[in-house]
């Protein structure tokens, strides 16, 4: 696998270049201001409706506790693969639940108001950025709680945290777009799960492999392939969302 690193790097470079160009052709200053404004709006809303965030926290907590109870019944400790898989499954379901509401909770009037004010690109980028922040907080808290309750076999903490960071970004990018799609349909909560899982699975596989490496404390170079692939998938998903969201938004 040594010979794969150089092409992967060039690929990453080209991808980032592409994204820069796509973004730069928009009026970057206006876009940035919009994104910041929209993110601020989302944070204020979240702060006012603290129960939603608390609900998410409780969801994470209960899931971890249920896992602890159901696996800890025999008093044995979890094996590393099970620990790893369980962690990512909890995180996956948490993120699906947390991000599903990002477009559904918006009422019609507010959407119409936003429609007159800002560009759709601003909306999707702001949502992605906001969801990433949300997911980061949730994922870190989840890791903390999980490690305290079930135990922490991780040997390379830095790498594991980096994996969580990548996971949060990846989940939020792909799920934000999906939730935008699902929110347009009638039975949106089922649809959210159906539409998102196939898209998320490749990402999840990469993440699991990376975090497995981190738990086992392998040298960091061993995860380079997964890292670049993940970054590339993220780049593609963000670009596609950026291009496609205007069509979704226009109604």
């Amino acid at each position: 696998m040594v010979n794969t690193r150089r092409p992967a790097d060039t690929f990453l470079f080209i991808t980032i270049l592409n994204i820069c160009v796509v973004t730069l052709r928009q009026n970057i200053k206006v876009l940035l201001r919009e994104v910041l404004y929209l993110m601020q709006k989302d944070f204020v809303l979240e702060w006012r409706q603290k129960y939603a965030f608390n609900g998410m926290l409780l969801y994470v907590g209960s899931t971890v506790f249920i896992c602890y109870l159901s696996f800890g019944l025999r008093g044995g400790t979890l094996g590393v693969p099970v620990w790893n898989a369980l962690f990512w499954i909890i995180l996956l379901f948490t993120s699906v639940n947390a991000i599903a509401k990002s477009f559904m909770q918006e009422n019609k009037g507010r959407l119409l108001y936003l429609y007159t004010l800002v560009s759709p690109q601003g909306v999707i980028l702001a949502k992605i950025a906001y969801n990433t922040c949300l997911m980061l907080v949730l994922a870190l808290l989840c890791y903390l709680f999980y490690a305290v309750v079930i135990g922490n076999p991780v040997q390379d903490e830095g790498m594991f945290l980096a994996t969580i960071l990548l996971g949060a970004v990846g989940f939020s990018t792909s799920l934000t777009m999906i939730s935008g799609i699902a929110a347009k349909a009638s039975n949106s909560s089922t649809l959210m799960a159906i539409l998102s899982f196939p898209v998320i699975i490749p990402m999840l596989l990469m993440l699991m492999k990376m975090s497995k490496n981190a738990i086992d404390g392998l040298e960091r170079a061993a995860s380079t392939d997964e890292l670049t692939t993940l970054l590339a998938i993220n780049a593609i998903v963000i670009t596609v969302s950026y291009i496609l969201f205007p069509y979704l938004w226009r109604n």
Binding site: M177, P198, V199, P202, I233, V237, S241
Partner: peptide, 11 residues
């Protein structure tokens, strides 16, 4: 969704 899914399918 079709375009989005295809872009995710390629990797």
């Amino acid at each position: 969704y079709n375009i989005f899914a295809y872009a995710a399918l390629i990797p």
